[in-house]
Design a protein around this nucleic acid. Sequence first.
RNA 1: CGGGGCGUAGCGCAGUCUGGUAGCGCACCACACUGGGGGUGUGGUGGUCGCAGGUUCAAAUCCUGCCGUCCCGACCA
Length: 567
Amino acid sequence: MRASQLLMPTMKEDPADADIASHRLMLRAGLIRQVASGIYNWLPLGVRVLHKIEAIVREELHASGAQEVLMPVVQPATLWRESGRWDVMGPELARLIDRHDNEFCLSPTQEEVITDLVRREIQSYRELPRNLFQIQTKFRDEIRPRFGVMRSREFIMKDGYSFHIDQDSMDETYRAMYDCYSRILERLGLEFRAVEADSGNIGGDNSHEFQVLADSGEDTIAYSTVSDYAANLEKATTVFPSAPAAPGDGALAKVATPDARTIAAVAELLDVPATSCVKTLFVEGEDGGPIGLILRGDHELNELKAQKLPGVAAPLRFADPEDLRGRIGAGVGSLGPVGLSLPMLVDHSAAQCTDFVCGANEDGFHYTGANWGRDVALDVEAVVDLRNVVPGDPSPDGQGELAFTRGIEIGHIFQLGKKYSDTLGASVLSQEGREETLLMGCYGIGITRMVAAIIEQKHDEQGICWPEAVAPADVHIVALNYHKSDAVRAAADQLYADIHASGRTALLDDRPERPGVKFADADLIGLPHRITVGDRGLKNNEVEYRRRIDADNVSVALGDVLQSLDG
RNA sequence: CGGGGCGUAGCGCAGUCUGGUAGCGCACCACACUGGGGGUGUGGUGGUCGCAGGUUCAAAUCCUGCCGUCCCGACCA
């Protein structure tokens, strides 16, 4: 690539709309340009990165026994109606109508189409398992696209689907995909964790996310400092005490707490730690009435855990404060379990509290010295896991403590069970001649998001620092005064040819720009190797070499510089 | 969808409160100088001020409506 010929519109200034490093650098380095909210053009340098990532993904998937297919972006509503998702998906599913008034959607994912394909083409257990994937454009009309291509509406995803006659086969492929994803991320040179995850609304049980570690990540990951336990915060658990604590010997007393409606305010007023307080939240129950969720004062409700509990409405909705006042006679901020006649669920940690502080169900009053059993009846079955874990909680496998880090979800693998094969009727004849519904797995990698995730992890003040595996080219030849100096032009052109002959790719900056501009762009674009060719060095038959991640140039004889690339 | 910004040249912004010739820096074009970390000078190109209505002698500026876009919360690769 010659910079003079390349559509490579670098920017000196930060675009006003880009907040996170990857978005900013992708715009500045000329990788992408925005077309509409969450919709982007990919320019030549960006496309080269995409292709490199795709090549690695393909290679590893093929090596793991998956086969590539290509399915349509535009899909008929009939299939989506059959699975039931036409009505479930809501406005995130972009819909359109053809000239014959038939309804279609832009595919956000492909379970329907792949299951349809398999139910038509696979009739026998002998043809199983099958593991099929594609790399293709998806469209999800996100409520709020953000962070450039990190959360865009149109994006490229590698999505794979596997089909099995039994759970053993499912487990085997799931494991193979787990290992495959790990290898892909290792080859990309990324720091990552595979974490236990909630399977969201796609359904199914067993599920792992592959999280690229980055402070700007949208997800919080809890991991054991000792073992390899790691889970998304929304899923992470800890070790639970086996039984509620024995009551303390404090006396139950009602105290005035005017204007103290938050745990922090109550704790300060009464001069007790938040860990000695209990907070009571009310959400809508399955029967329409409110249900109390009781947590230790310093803990956060985990909404995902809560909405999966029996008796709690999903999705989680907080109860109407006015309705609560009507039922209890007090407002939010003064509510508590003592004397409460509504159903409640108590978090394990809250159940361990003794002589605790809680709302008195009377505006402006709290109880102190409250105890489970003595002051509030506590059914063992009502003690559940309701909260987000916190750093320092014991790891649920009993090894070490939990610590937190942030991550970007770059891949997700699920076991879907029979959710789609059932509704769409994908089955085969088993060895015994019985009709068996297929088990299904699904596996995704966000290809376009991967580009952003890599940059989040690999950049500095000056620009991107591409890992070799995905860099848009290997070597940046900064040819100083190329347009004027015959010596520079000859040496740079020769170097360019030699690099390509050796199997690497180079970007030759042959533009009639000043040195400062070229150096700044080289840092910004971030190719792993840089060779500076200038008259000054050429006098001694030398050029300068610098790795992008190193601080300083070293002078190298022109004839030896190619060997530096291997070092 | 709720809350908060922003929309003036390719990019970054001023001008809007207080209506009166549409500006600055960078980029771009030409020429000259310069030539190892975004250089200097001279001269230029480029804008229906997001769109539509309204008020006014006069609207980037005031009013109404709409659109776009970004950020914060619920969804997800």
